[in-house]
Design a binder for these strands. Structure first.
Length: 312
DNA sequence: TAACAGTCAATATT
DNA sequence: AATATTGACTGTTA
């Protein structure tokens, strides 16, 4: 961060970005404490446009007009019938209440700590994104479908439980743990597929972060935050908390901040294998398959904060 | 370790 | 249903 800070001072201002007389890197704010000098590989999942982490973006951000930003955000949200909850959870990684407070009583930039500035940087980034509304609308739709799926990811759950219980009763012996009969868990359901697609977004491949020279990064960051509409790569896509498929495309984001995603690893062919087991399915095979299935579900659940979205 | 900042979850309002 | 308010809690800072 400190190095980033330097680059801003040396390059950012000369570039005449927005407001130049920006933050005196208040000794206190540019805390270097917590983060060991070690190039601690902070969660890649948080990389945003120009391959910078949101935190780097915040650190290098020029002074932003929080009031103007919130005003604009409110305008856009209301104009498009987008709620604070959706916006907060998918764009800012905050709850509805926090968003409400933030939008209603934005603190002036200079009174905010780095942490406190983050939401505003995200908002600005979002405002700059030409497809911001479009994306949010997508999320909205996805959520809707998600709910339908839930009522549906619920019926199956019940079946699943029944099977478990039945199996447990049947093979009472067998290591005790409920051995599950091969459920025909047809994972190919529309729900999963749909979400996955929407999650693709622009399908921008992971940015070559390591390559970017600091200078360019700094410039890019500032540019990205400039109110003017510039070809913004893609927003940090903060949370997207629910979107199971969200980051599936990149495969990144292993328990990073809001967007915890099941590592691609988990994708054992479980589900499918379960259903199509050759007739010679020995009990052992079945068990293995079921185990995989269960693991698969657990991993999926791990990516969903809301228990109501758990699939079992 | 008190003061502060940022959030959340619960719940009050609209 | 969406938005506003607020007490409690966590992590920071001085």
């Amino acid at each position: 961060l400190s190095s980033a800070e330097e680059s801003v001072k040396s390059l950012g201002e000369p570039l005449g970005l927005q407001t130049s007389g920006l933050e005196q890197p208040q000794s206190s704010e540019v805390s270097e404490g917590s983060q060991p000098s070690t190039p601690l590989p902070l969660p890649l999942s948080t990389l945003g446009p120009s391959g910078l982490s949101i935190q780097e973006m915040v650190a290098m951000s020029p002074e932003l007009d929080t009031y103007a930003i919130t005003k604009k955000v409110k305008e856009v949200l209301t104009d498009n019938n987008l709620g604070q909850r959706l916006f907060g959870e998918t764009i800012l990684g905050l709850t509805q209440g926090s968003v409400s407070d933030l939008l209603a009583r934005p603190k002036p930039w200079h009174k905010l700590s780095l942490k406190g500035r983050e939401p505003f940087v995200r908002m600005q980034l979002w405002l700059n994104d030409p497809r911001n509304v479009e994306k949010l609308m997508d999320m909205k739709r996805m959520e809707k479908k998600g709910k339908e799926c839930v009522s549906e990811s619920r019926i199956r759950r019940e079946l699943f439980i029944e099977e478990i219980q039945a199996a447990g009763a049947a093979a009472s012996g067998e290591g005790g743990s409920p051995s599950v009969p091969p459920s025909k868990a047809g994972e190919g359901d529309s729900c999963d597929g749909t979400e996955g697609d929407a999650a693709m977004e622009d399908g921008k491949p992971a940015g070559p972060r390591s390559l970017t020279p600091e200078e360019e990064a700094a410039a890019a960051a500032a540019k990205a935050l400039t109110p003017s509409h510039s070809p913004i790569p893609k927003d940090p896509t903060t949370s997207a908390a629910e979107g199971p498929g969200t980051s599936s495309s990149t495969g990144l984001g292993l328990f990073g901040f809001p967007e915890t995603t099941p590592s691609a690893s988990g994708s054992t062919s479980s589900s499918s294998s379960t259903s199509r087991n050759p007739k010679d399915s020995s009990l052992r095979k079945k068990k293995a398959a079921n185990l995989n299935n269960i693991i698969h579900r657990l991993e999926k659940a791990a990516s969903k904060e809301d228990p109501s979205e758990w699939e079992f």
